[in-house]
């Protein structure tokens, strides 16, 4: 008979990594090479974009390009601001809508929901992820935009119309439409990553909270969510990354007008949308260059967001002050 040992005790043996093992070293080198070549590819893309963008950088000046809001290729006026603004606003709206919904869905699926409902909900999330973006665009154009125009926007105007973001004529096509479509598109990403993150929360933490007399929701609030927070932030940033770069669906519903409006009901434009729309017909090095420069800006925004994400995640992972973990 085996000696008494509790079945719930964790495995006592874990093989320590042996640094000197030749296989491990080869593996290490392999990883380094692959990682390195990724960096090289990213560098080459940046270089090429920079080369194409150079004529317009030179002619317009960085500052004027970034902070001017006039975009008129015919008169060779190129200002990036409406696109930067449109990209950030639509992605922001998308995250604002998608984050709470995704976290709620993830909690429902992994912690609270009735078991019978979990599978169908999980399946529909997968379906959402599999829909091509042009289909989102079509649906947005023919179903969602008319609905926004006739119901949602008038309603928002009536209830929250004192806010500048909900003023102006309800057109349907615009920042709000793009934001909502993007929310739908990034929801599966955020939800599925969050579900994976929630699975990593040690059950012992939940038990600890429940044993203190926490209700299910209280245990989620004091033990699950704080533990999962860095991962949920990571999930949001993955979703945000997808929203920033999404082209097709946004192009179809944002209104494609290179202007800046405070109102979410107004039509706007985004960086990927303008590049996709104008690149084929761009005439002249300056126009092509300006579009490449917009590409660089998009690249830059993504990089900055990634950096912020890292800083956030690391700060959160370090835990409360004074901790060493």
């Amino acid at each position: 008979m085996p000696p008494p040992s509790d079945i719930s005790a964790p495995a006592a043996h874990s093989t320590p990594a042996r640094a000197g093992n030749p296989g491990d070293r080869a593996w290490g080198w392999g990883i380094t090479i692959f990682g390195g070549s990724l960096l090289v590819v990213a560098g080459l893309i940046l270089y090429e974009l920079g080369r194409v963008a150079a004529p317009s950088w030179g002619q317009l000046g960085y500052f004027k390009f970034l902070f001017s809001s006039a975009w008129d290729p015919v008169q060779e006026k190129f200002g990036a601001l409406p696109f930067i603004y449109g990209t950030l606003v639509t992605s922001g709206v998308a995250l604002l809508i998608a984050l709470p919904v995704s976290v709620g869905l993830a909690l429902f699926l992994s912690e609270m929901g009735p078991r019978a409902l979990r599978a169908p909900v999980a399946y529909s999330i997968e379906v959402l992820a599999a829909i091509p973006s042009v289909i989102y665009g079509l649906w947005g154009l023919f179903v969602m935009v008319p609905w926004l125009r006739s119901s949602v926007e008038p309603f928002l105007q009536k209830t929250l119309g004192f806010l500048p973001i909900f003023q102006g004529p309800p057109i349907g096509l615009g920042y709000l439409a793009a934001g909502v479509i993007l929310a739908l598109m990034i929801l599966p990403t955020i939800a599925s990553v969050t579900i994976e993150v929630l699975k990593t929360v040690p059950p012992s933490l939940k038990e600890g909270a429940l044993a203190l007399g926490a209700t299910r929701w209280e245990s989620i609030r004091i033990s699950v969510l704080p533990y999962a927070r860095p991962g949920i932030i990571g999930a949001s940033l993955l979703g945000l990354g997808r929203a920033l770069g999404e082209t097709m669906a946004v192009t179809m519903v944002i209104g494609n007008s290179p202007e800046i409006h405070a109102s979410l009901f107004a039509p706007g434009y985004s960086l990927p949308a303008v590049i996709a729309n104008e690149f084929a017909e761009a005439t002249g090095d300056v126009h092509v260059g300006a579009l490449a420069a917009l590409g660089l800006v998009l690249f830059g925004i993504t990089l900055i967001l990634n950096a912020i994400a890292r800083i956030l995640v690391e700060a959160v992972a370090r835990g409360p002050k004074g901790s060493r973990a």
């Binding site: 509790d6 012992s204 933490l205 600890g208 044993a211 533990y227 835990g319 409360p320």
Partner: peptide, 14 residues
């Protein structure tokens, strides 16, 4: 109240 086999303090709390 209950105390478990493995210590399970809330890791994000002081």
């Amino acid at each position: 109240g209950m105390v478990f086999q493995r210590p399970n303090p809330f890791p994000t709390m002081s």
